[in-house]
Design a binder for these strands. Structure first.
Length: 117
DNA sequence: CTTTTGACTTATT
DNA sequence: AAATAAGCCAAAA
């Protein structure tokens, strides 16, 4: 069961975005905060994520701006990397992936269709 | 209302 | 490249 607070809340907007991240792609905390309407609230996004583990949401696809997972100190960094690796995301020896290639933006799903407007 | 807290980010050594 | 410091903002208490 997923957490569904007020649709108007910052949290709900973040969760809605997380749910749309395609497999094998990632988003950063700051990016989510900005798209949810609160630039700079990256830390708050992280706090929201703390409740996502164990839900249906693809929480593993949210990483930090360095292209690395921020869950090592929580004890399940290896689990998160494992899930992402299973989706095709590759991590270098430094524990970071190629953000420039894997970071996903919501409008990416539309390409030629966007020009209809 | 004020204070505290973080799965963050950026700039600066 | 790695470690520090300071800034940042939404919730909960």
């Amino acid at each position: 069961m997923t957490v569904m607070p007020d649709p108007a809340s910052f949290r709900a907007r973040v969760l809605a975005l997380v749910e749309r991240i395609p497999a094998g792609r990632v988003m950063t905390y700051g990016q989510l905060a900005t798209l949810a309407g609160a630039p700079g609230a990256a830390r708050q996004v992280g706090f929201i994520m703390s409740g996502l583990a164990g839900t249906d949401l693809p929480w593993q696809r949210v990483i930090n701006a360095q292209g690395a997972v921020s869950t090592d100190r929580l004890g399940f960094g290896d689990i998160q990397r494992g899930l992402l690796t299973a989706e095709g995301v590759t991590f270098g020896a430094s524990g970071r992936c190629d953000l420039g290639r894997l970071q996903w933006w919501p409008d990416e799903q539309t390409d030629a269709q966007a020009s209809l407007f």
